[in-house]
């Protein structure tokens, strides 16, 4: 398995170049999406929630509770959308990986170069989201920086395993199924919209094990400023293990699929 800095840079430049054609659209989406959700759910629904003063929210407003959870969940979605489809298409016949690995680029170069770009997309989306959240008054300016880092880590924890899997997928319908049957349930039940503590006991245990729950908790504790250092280390290590594990598996699957 070879890896070269040149190769990785070349691969990442390719994706960046492609992005130049569509970035305007994605900016609109990445600003509009959080703004709409925060306005409708944070303000609108928040009006009803805050009226009740539920003990589950530990005294924070629904907007402040929701924003970091939504951010973590949005980064999961961005990671999935950026890594599942594009990786799958690139690995198929006449895909860009096939073209790239016919040159001195190795499969590992292709993987890392692409992940670098996906990471860049996650970082920029997290930044716009966090700024929008700040503008809504959901997070203080001083915590925007750490929040972006936490959210990017959450996104990467999905990006690398999904890329490792997507390269092996034969039928695109599976990718769609993965989004609807795995990502959406995670989105809904990992403490994004309500506190996991509300769930019945066994479901709570399941929810706490999911990567998105770890990401949501990390982002929320950073954003609300009530972070327990030990918990932060715990959540971060969980996510970091996923990132590294995804990379390790991806190195193998990319090698296997692209040199077959």
């Amino acid at each position: 398995m070879q890896l070269s800095a040149d190769g990785v840079t070349q691969a990442w430049r390719y994706w960046l170049l492609r992005y130049r054609r569509t970035w305007r659209g994605t900016i609109v989406i990445s600003v509009a999406n959080p703004a709409l959700f925060l306005a409708a759910l944070g303000f609108g629904l928040g009006k009803l929630v805050d009226h009740e003063h539920s003990a589950y929210l530990h005294g924070s407003s629904y907007l402040a509770f929701l924003a970091p959870g939504l951010l973590a969940a949005a980064m999961m979605q961005t990671a999935y959308i950026e890594s599942a489809g594009p990786v799958h298409v690139s690995a198929r016949r006449a895909g860009v990986y096939r073209v790239a690995t016919a040159t001195p680029l190795s499969p590992l170069d292709a993987l890392l170069g692409h992940l670098l770009f996906i990471g860049f997309r996650i970082l920029t989306s997290a930044t716009t989201f966090a700024i929008v959240a700040w503008a809504f008054g959901a997070v203080p300016a001083s915590r925007v920086g750490p929040l972006v880092l936490a959210a990017t880590l959450t996104g990467l924890a999905f990006a690398t395993p999904v890329a490792a899997w997507a390269v092996t997928v034969e039928r695109p319908a599976l990718l769609n199924g993965g989004f609807r049957f795995v990502i959406m349930p995670l989105y809904m039940f990992s403490g994004t919209f309500f506190a996991v503590a509300q769930l019945p006991g066994w479901l709570q245990a399941v929810a706490r094990c999911t990567p998105l729950y770890q990401g949501v908790q990390l982002c929320r504790s950073v954003s609300l400023g009530d972070a327990d250092p030990l918990a932060v280390v715990g959540h971060s290590s969980y996510l970091a293990v996923l990132v590294v594990g995804g990379l390790a598996v991806g190195a193998r699957t990319f090698q296997r699929v692209l040199t077959a």
């Binding site: 629904l45 809904m188 039940f189």
Partner: peptide, 19 residues
């Protein structure tokens, strides 16, 4: 499934917060 997920999460989950 999608509306059911929304219902479970927002309807039931957030419902507890809303009353």
């Amino acid at each position: 499934l999608e509306p059911i997920l929304y219902l479970g999460s927002i309807g039931l989950g957030v419902g507890v917060l809303v009353g």
